[in-house]
Amino acid sequence: METLAAISRWIAKQHVITWCVAREGELWCANAFYVYDPQNVAFYVLSEDNTRHAQMTGLHAPVAGTINGQPKTVALIRGVQFKGEIRRLEGKESEMMRARYNHRFPVARVVSAPVWEIRPDELKFTDNTLGFGKKLYWLRNSGSEQA
């Protein structure tokens, strides 16, 4: 659990996620502010249904993406790569996560975009502050963690 805890601590300090979806041989990526839920290892974003990535996603789809900082020095590079699934939330689940999202990003209160859950099955955290090229891995289904 220490690997996931280390990854989660870093993720909680960031606020922008990039995710990519594919459909019928076409790829598209998007960026958004996110709320991270460390208990469920999931990210929550707002995105309008009429966006290209939402149209490609439908109600759910495979997803891959990244979260990264913008250091000026290679020795300080840190970032997460992930793959998993994205899905549009509905009903009470959506309302609950929207409240959390609005709490973190109050400006979002004026946006009526749907809430989407990005649920990674795999996380890879590169942390050069632990040594050049240091990687930490987490897999949801196996409970596996490795440095």
Rank of each mutant, 00 (worst) to 15 (best):
T129F: 06
K134A: 11
E95I: 07
W116H: 11
L123W: 06
S112G: 14
F43K: 02
G84T: 03
G91Q: 06
E117M: 08
L139T: 14
Q81V: 04
Y34S: 03
E48T: 13
W138G: 01
A54T: 13
G91A: 06
S112R: 15
R98I: 08
E95L: 13
L139S: 14
L27G: 14
R109G: 04
V16I: 14
R98Q: 07
F33N: 07
R78Y: 12
Y44R: 07
N68Q: 14
P38S: 00
K124Y: 04
N50F: 05
A42F: 05
N102Q: 11
A147G: 15
Q146F: 11
R119A: 13
R78M: 12
Y36H: 06
D127H: 01
W138F: 03
F43T: 00
E95N: 11
G58V: 02
E90A: 14
V21Q: 02
R119C: 13
E90M: 12
S142R: 08
R98T: 10
V21S: 05
S142L: 12
A61C: 07
L139P: 14
H103L: 15
Y137W: 04
E145F: 09
R88C: 05
R104L: 08
V35Y: 08
D49L: 14
G84V: 00
F33V: 12
A30I: 00
L76T: 08
N128C: 00
R104A: 10
W116D: 04
T73W: 13
E145Q: 06
E85H: 08
K72M: 15
N68C: 11
P114K: 02
N102L: 13
A30T: 02
R119T: 14
D121P: 05
L76N: 10
A22L: 07
N141F: 09
T73F: 12
E85Y: 10
E117H: 02
E48K: 15
F43N: 01
E95M: 12
G25A: 01
Y44K: 07
H60E: 14
N50G: 10
A54Q: 05
M96H: 13
R109T: 05
Q70V: 09
R52S: 04
A64R: 03
A75V: 13
N102T: 08
H53L: 03
N68A: 13
Y137F: 04
Y44W: 04
N68G: 14
L123G: 03
R87I: 10
E117A: 07
V107C: 14
F132C: 09
K135W: 12
K124H: 08
L46S: 05
F82N: 06
T57Y: 01
W28P: 10
G25Q: 01
C29T: 07
R87W: 00
S94C: 05
R100H: 10
Q81C: 06
E48R: 13
N31F: 03
G143T: 06
M97L: 11
R109N: 05
S47G: 15
N68M: 13
D49K: 13
A113V: 06
P38A: 00
E145T: 10
E85S: 11
K92R: 14
